[in-house]
């Protein structure tokens, strides 16, 4: 299912009610956004209209998306924490290619380069040529030439793909869990855990600590004396 079809199905629950869809696409960008968009993240109406337009567009062919999926899985194979599919890495890469058009040529051309290599060596496209052959190609492009600014096209292409795959994974729900990030939640921060300080051989300076917030009093309304000394 391509992006446009998936939007239709989100909107209608099926892809059959074409007439209804026609009338809905006459709606304002805001209404469309409200109705179909799983992403609700504080856009202005103008930003929402741009993003809705991007989401409706298709850039990669189904074959390219399949190839991106295979490549992404080679770069980051699934483990017990999560997979490329769970992290929605390929849809993310497609969105970025539409959002930042400089990526389009480099990715599309790079995928073709991979196919050409695979065809030359095994008479098959990259997707069809088997993992051993795929890896033998990647082994030649996955390591930048040390201490050299200018790198060959295929090394730059692979570098871009590695960056997008890794960032796509580690900004996903499963990836953030695997990384172990603990924040983005209301809390009362009260310093570095003692065990961490102990591990590092560090300690809070008592004089410094005396200036710091007493979290038990955080809800007491601040009052000062005439010299600015906090009294509450």
């Amino acid at each position: 299912m391509n992006r446009r079809e998936s939007i239709k199905s989100l909107l209608l629950g099926s892809v059959t009610a074409g007439a209804l869809l026609e009338s809905c696409t006459q709606a304002s960008p805001e209404q469309l956004e409200q109705a179909i968009w799983k992403y609700q993240y504080g856009r202005t109406p103008a930003e929402a209209a741009v993003d809705t337009r991007l989401l409706e567009q298709t850039f990669f062919s189904d074959a390219e998306k399949e190839q991106l999926g295979v490549l992404a899985n080679l770069i980051l194979p699934p483990n017990e924490h999560g997979s490329i599919e769970e992290a929605e890495v390929v849809p993310f890469i497609e969105f970025m290619a539409k959002d930042f058009e400089d990526f389009q040529l480099e990715i599309r051309g790079g995928l073709m380069w991979l196919n050409a290599q695979a065809n030359q060596e095994s008479g098959q496209n990259f997707v069809g040529c088997g993992e051993i052959q795929q890896k033998s190609i990647l082994d030649r492009i996955a390591y930048p030439i040390p201490d050299q600014d200018e790198q060959p096209m295929e090394v730059n292409f692979f570098n871009l793909m590695r960056n997008l795959v890794l960032t796509g994974y580690f900004t996903s729900k499963v990836g953030i869990e695997e990384l172990g990030y603990q924040g983005n939640t209301p809390n009362v921060w009260d310093g570095v855990p003692q065990e961490v300080l102990d591990d590092m051989g560090l300690a809070y300076d008592p004089e410094w600590l005396a200036k710091c917030v007493d979290q038990d009093k955080r809800n007491d309304i601040a009052q000062w004396d005439a010299d600015g000394n906090l009294m509450s």
Binding site: L76, H81, R162, N163, L166, T167, T171
Partner: peptide, 30 residues
């Protein structure tokens, strides 16, 4: 900090300061 677009770029670039290879693919990157 909270991961955001860019987290994971150059996943092992810092290896060069540890005398280890930079680049590659596979679960070592995680």
């Amino acid at each position: 900090g909270m991961p955001s677009y860019g987290t994971g770029f150059g996943p092992n670039d810092l290896n060069k300061y540890l005398g280890k290879p930079v680049g590659g693919y596979g679960n070592q990157l995680r």
